[in-house]
Amino acid sequence: MNEERTGVATVGGNPITLIGPELKVGDKAPDFTINKDLTTEASLSDYDGKIKLISVVPSLDTSVCEAQTRRFNEAAAKLGDQVKVLTISVDLPFAQSRFCSVAGIENLDTLTDYKYRSFGKSYGVLIKELQLDMRSIFILDEKNTIRYVEYLKEMTNHPDYDAALEAAQALIK
């Protein structure tokens, strides 16, 4: 059974329910099953040995999500090959692919939680009422320990890009 958390986030000022645990710095990152495209699945182990900056957006077809993805795409090019930047949404793979080609997104992996909502449930970001993943940022070290986490209180707000990027850079040896 999945834990439900109320009173922790809003969408347009309206309260929502998040499904799953609230993860904290120092926690071992839970595994997940997610899709790279319609039929190819991925999991946390696919990124073993890398620092992971996981940028979670509700949908790439919104202005804040687009800005967040563009910002981390630019940063990914500068972070080097020790860091893998992942953008996760519940958009269908076709929409993600179209967005990336139009927006010139090529330095990060877009992954979709559309099929199982496994990431959302495991990381405590699945919005019960909307079946979207709540905007959030997770940074995991090479051994999948959470080193930074930001759960946004309001879905339409931007995350703290600078703090997230500083946390990722601090892990680079």
Rank of each mutant, 00 (worst) to 15 (best):
D160C: 00
K115Y: 14
D91R: 06
L79F: 03
D81S: 15
D27Q: 13
L92E: 13
I127V: 15
Q131R: 12
K84Y: 07
D91C: 02
S101Y: 10
F94E: 11
K36A: 14
V8G: 04
L44W: 05
L130P: 02
I137N: 02
D31F: 08
E154M: 09
K153T: 09
M155L: 00
D46N: 15
L44Y: 09
T10S: 02
L79I: 09
T10V: 13
D31H: 12
L132D: 02
Q96S: 03
T33R: 11
T156I: 11
A168P: 01
E166G: 02
N144P: 06
V125T: 15
L152P: 01
I172D: 03
N107D: 13
V102H: 04
N107Q: 14
S63N: 12
K52S: 13
V90D: 03
K50T: 04
Q82A: 15
S55A: 14
T87P: 04
K36I: 13
D133E: 13
P93Y: 03
E4D: 11
D81P: 09
L132V: 06
Q96I: 00
M1R: 07
S118P: 03
Y148C: 05
D81C: 12
V125E: 06
T33I: 15
G13M: 06
D48Y: 07
V102E: 09
G12D: 02
G120L: 01
V64L: 05
K36Q: 14
L92N: 11
L18D: 00
P15V: 10
Y47L: 08
K36Y: 13
C100V: 11
E150Y: 00
E106P: 01
K50V: 08
G120V: 03
L53N: 12
T112I: 06
E166R: 00
D91W: 00
D109G: 09
L171H: 07
T156A: 13
S59I: 06
Q96N: 14
G13S: 10
Q169W: 01
N73I: 10
R98A: 12
P159N: 00
L130C: 06
M1Q: 11
G20W: 04
Q131C: 02
K143W: 02
T87S: 14
D141L: 05
E22Q: 15
I146M: 02
K115H: 11
G80K: 09
T110W: 04
T33D: 09
V64K: 01
I146L: 05
I127Y: 03
G20Q: 09
K28N: 14
E41G: 08
E66N: 15
K50E: 10
D48T: 14
I34H: 11
T39Y: 14
Y161W: 03
R71I: 14
I16D: 07
A170C: 05
N35L: 15
G13T: 08
Y161D: 13
